[in-house]
């Protein structure tokens, strides 16, 4: 794995450098796109961490929504400080994932996908009609975190996009560390062969529950940042389109590579913007691009890079990162 880790690390550093450079010089509108990509990047990391133990969710927007609605509800409706609301949103996302995971994780493969999708759609139907949150009309006036104590005004688009990049990078680093830990290696082993982990005395269900709970916390973090970014809460955040987008971004970048998610998020956000402002029927073109990437690079951009460098590097005795 050594050379693979190097490739992924370099990809991450390059992406971060690109994002920071772009953020330094970008105009108002591009700042918004950068912040959007960074927040989607956090969301992809949440999904990809779950994929580490072999679970793919198609209802991750539900967990994003828990964070978004908790943050909006606690700040706008209850008047609590945004910092508290942010912490509560993350905890709420973890709790929601834990409760859902208790039974959803008993299902696997396609069944897990269907259970997560169904639950997210139930949540969507609920918030779509919920009066307290203005139902389908959504709710505006959601405040951003107050960082004036350290001299940062997050209402400034440039400051906010920088903060979003920093949070995304921090989450990435944290997950890199967790994935290299014994716990992370056990999750990866479960993805490869859950039956053998069970035969070796590993409680597969509990590991997956822990991964799903952590993933829920991160998805909720992304949701709480998302509503701060747009200052607006809408049930559309919970729609299966959002679950699909995060999965597409992660797959484009490279499922199971961590750094691939934020890269795919950047590609998705900027491609969407370029296409939608220049081309009619732009979703059709977007679909064509994704179909091409999926065929040309079945393991995503980062997966492609990993395979490319694994072929080029000599099969050194102590790395053993053969394809």
């Amino acid at each position: 794995m050594a050379s693979g880790n190097l490739v992924r690390g370099l990809a991450g550093v390059a992406l971060l450098a690109g994002a920071l450079t772009g953020q330094r010089f970008a105009g108002f509108f591009a700042q918004e796109l950068i912040a959007e990509a960074a927040i989607l990047g956090i969301f992809t990391l949440s999904l990809d961490f779950l994929a580490t133990c072999g679970l793919v969710s198609l209802g991750h927007a539900g967990l994003l929504g828990v964070g978004a609605y908790l943050f909006a509800g606690l700040t706008v409706l209850s008047g609590l400080p945004p910092a508290f609301a942010l912490a509560a949103a993350i905890a709420g996302g973890a709790l929601a994932a834990f409760v859902v995971g208790l039974f959803a994780i008993r299902a696997q493969g396609a069944f897990f996908i269907m259970v997560t999708l169904a639950l997210a759609e139930m949540f969507y139907a609920f918030v779509f009609r919920n009066r307290a949150f203005n139902g389908a009309d959504g709710m505006g006036g959601i405040p951003r975190l107050d960082l004036s104590r350290i001299g940062v005004d997050l209402n400034d688009p440039q400051a906010f996009s920088l903060a979003a990049i920093c949070v995304c990078a921090a989450v990435w680093l944290l997950l890199e560390l967790v994935c290299a830990s014994p716990f992370g290696r056990a999750l990866d082993a479960i993805r490869q062969n859950p039956h053998r982990v069970a035969a070796l005395g590993g409680r597969v269900y509990l590991y997956r529950l822990a991964a799903f709970t952590s993933s829920g916390a991160l998805a909720a973090l992304a949701g709480a940042l998302k509503v701060q970014h747009t200052n607006f809460l809408s049930p559309d955040l919970v729609s299966w389109f959002v679950s699909g987008d995060v999965l597409i971004a992660t797959v484009i970048g490279g499922l199971g590579t961590l750094v691939g998610g934020p890269l795919g998020a950047a590609i998705l956000v900027f491609l969407k913007d370029a296409l939608s402002s220049n081309v009619g029927h732009w979703y059709l073109f977007l679909g064509a691009v994704f179909a091409f990437v999926a065929l040309a690079m079945p393991r995503g951009v980062v997966g492609f890079l990993l395979a490319f460098f694994a072929r080029r590097s000599p099969p050194a005795g102590n790395t053993g990162d053969a394809p």
């Binding site: 830990s181 014994p182 716990f183 992370g184 056990a186 590993g202």
Partner: peptide, 13 residues
């Protein structure tokens, strides 16, 4: 797994 060390998530394997 046998040694019960796979619950550690902070230091590298």
């Amino acid at each position: 797994l046998r040694a019960g060390k796979t619950t550690r998530f902070w230091r590298p394997m």
